Amino acid sequence: MRVPFIKMHGLGNDFVVLDARERPLPGTISSSNAKALANRNTGIGCDQLIVLEPSAAHAFAMRIYNADGGEVGACGNATRAVALLHGEAATIETTGGLLALEPAKGGATVNMGVPRVDWNQIPLDYAMDTLSMPVGWRELKNPVAVNVGNPHVIFFVEDADKVDLGTLGPEIENDPLFPERINVNVASGVGENHLKLHVWERGAGLTRACGTGACATAVAAIRRGLVGDAVTVTLPGGDLFIEWREGESIRMTGPATESFRGEFEWDDFA
Results as ranks from 00 to 15, higher is better:
Glu258Ala: 09
Glu246Trp: 10
Ala256Val: 00
Glu180Phe: 01
Pro170Gln: 05
Leu206Trp: 05
Ile50His: 07
Ile44Ser: 00
Phe264Val: 15
Val227Pro: 08
Leu195Glu: 10
Ala59Lys: 06
Asp175Cys: 08
Leu49Lys: 09
Asp175Ile: 01
Gly228Val: 06
Leu18Trp: 08
Glu102Met: 12
Leu195Asn: 03
Arg138Val: 15
Arg224Glu: 08
Thr42Asn: 13
Val110Gln: 05
Leu49Trp: 02
Ala230Asp: 15
Ile182Cys: 04
Gln48Lys: 12
Met112Cys: 07
Gly254Val: 00
Glu71His: 04
Arg223Ala: 12
Ala74Ile: 00
Leu99Asn: 03
Pro115Met: 05
Trp137Pro: 13
Phe241Glu: 14
Phe241Lys: 15
Phe269Pro: 06
Ile154Cys: 15
Ile29Thr: 15
Ala59Tyr: 05
Gly211Ala: 01
Met133Phe: 08
Gly45Gln: 09
Pro103Ile: 10
Val219Asp: 11
Asp118Tyr: 07
Thr232Leu: 12
Leu177Cys: 01
Ala89Cys: 03
Leu235Cys: 08
Ala59Asp: 05
Asp161Thr: 15
Thr28His: 05
Glu171His: 06
Ala38Trp: 07
Gly113Tyr: 07
Glu22Leu: 14
Ser31Ile: 14
Tyr126Gln: 12
Gly247Asn: 10
Arg181Asn: 03
Met62Tyr: 09
Leu49Tyr: 00
Arg138Lys: 11
Val227His: 09
Asn41Glu: 13
Glu192Arg: 15
Trp200Glu: 02
Cys75Phe: 03
Ala270Leu: 11
Pro143Gln: 04
Ala100Ser: 11
Phe178Tyr: 05
Gly97Glu: 10
Asp164Trp: 00
Cys75Thr: 03
Gly254Asn: 08
Glu139Phe: 02
Met112His: 08
Gly205His: 10
Glu93Phe: 11
Trp266Val: 12
Val186Pro: 01
His58Asp: 04
Gly43Leu: 11
Phe5Met: 07
Pro176Tyr: 07
Ala218Arg: 04
